[in-house]
Design a protein around this nucleic acid. Structure first.
Lengths: 206, 206
DNA sequence: CCTGACGTTGACTGACCAGTCAATCGCCAG
DNA sequence: CTGGCGATTGACTGGTCAGTCAACGTCAGG
């Protein structure tokens, strides 16, 4: 049983390092922190980080991919349900917002260091990031075909607006430009979808 | 007249360095490039960059502030006009889109290295950046008071969605995630406002 | 108890680069 | 022609870190 026990212990150590990295990246930023900061935070020797990861970059890559894949999976799951498109967008927005509520540090790292860092890591993961845009775009496209959404706005474009609005709101929370009480966070789920689907215009009476 | 001629020449040299920096930052990114790259691109000795700027950071700060202030001024000017709110948002979107068309490299640098780099330079310029959000929010707020826009979406929030959508579209162009023919760029101005104001929902018949 | 494989350590190295500075240049006024 | 001042040059320095590696610890299986 030695191997199994070791493998489990090794996986745990790896996790400890990843979790420490999230805190350090969130606090200091990826470029500003040193690998030794991660090791210190994890309570582990400098070299051990290189035992579990090939490079500092790989630590961030791992964090990003782990979480992003979960999100893509969630979007696909929502997309498969037989509900109105607007409900789908609500579910997607809710998932992302809840991800933030559940682990703000991790979301901060992913958004600030990868998603919005289109130059450095965003470049590397452009493909993965685009997958999310494309999934959203296809939700919109099918909604247009079904007559749920107006057809004169390109789905790609609508996806950008939708995702852009979400990311901007999270960024607002991350950098304290927007209030982030429990109430505000719940309210945001509604507002995002309401803004993008309903629009700002005062509706002609119903 | 020595002083005057020198002053003009000095201002020109400074400009040459700034313009070179835009190209280098756009091509390689701020963190990845060396100060010597800027000097080379400008056809100037390394040390001269430090004659005109205190630091590498100051070069980027200057580029950002120069352009951002022009934009804030433009938004204020639009806001002062006596036109419907929707027209104001159209004008703001058009201004930003045209800024991109006119100098994509500069806009790329500002968005990628400052606006979206909320960790490094974004932090420094958070105040300036927020000014833009606040101006947009106040356009929305007054439109709500006047009954032009529905009142159940917070102006701050609407501003985030609006600005977020624009930035996401520019980012799409910058990283070739969205098509950027002349037609697409013109179309974008309309689509951004149409999406945010009109919403994605198929309108109940008019 | 021994052995060897693997987890763990942290001092060290090599590369890189921002910013400095002493030396030179070029232009103008007197 | 000359003195002087600001523009210009680029070699050099100091500090920083990512990544390496040789040594040490631990533990399971023989």
């Amino acid at each position: 049983m030695a191997t199994a026990r070791n493998a489990a212990a090794a996986a745990e150590k790896r996790r400890v390092i990843l979790d420490a990295a999230v805190r350090v990246f969130a606090r200091q930023g990826f470029h500003t922190c040193r690998v030794s900061d991660i090791a210190d935070e994890a309570g582990v020797a400098y070299g051990l980080v290189y035992h579990y990861f090939r490079s500092k970059d790989e630590v961030l890559d791992t964090l990003f991919l782990e979480r992003w894949n979960v999100m893509l999976e969630a979007i696909r799951e929502v997309d498969g349900q037989d509900i109105p498109a607007r409900r789908k967008l609500e579910a997607i927005a809710a998932f992302i917002v809840e991800s933030y509520r559940h682990d703000p540090d991790l979301m901060k790292v992913i958004i600030v260091e990868v998603t919005r860092a289109a130059n450095s890591f965003g470049q590397t993961h452009l493909g993965k990031i685009s997958e999310a845009y494309n999934l959203i775009a296809s939700v919109v496209e099918r909604a247009q075909a079904a007559g749920e959404f107006r057809a004169d706005i390109s789905p790609q474009f609508a996806a950008m607006a939708f995702y852009g609005a979400i990311e901007q709101v999270l960024t607002g929370w991350i950098f304290d430009t927007l209030p982030q009480g429990e109430r505000d966070i719940d309210e945001a789920k509604r507002l995002i979808v309401e803004t993008i689907c309903g629009g700002l215009d005062r509706p002609v009476e119903r």
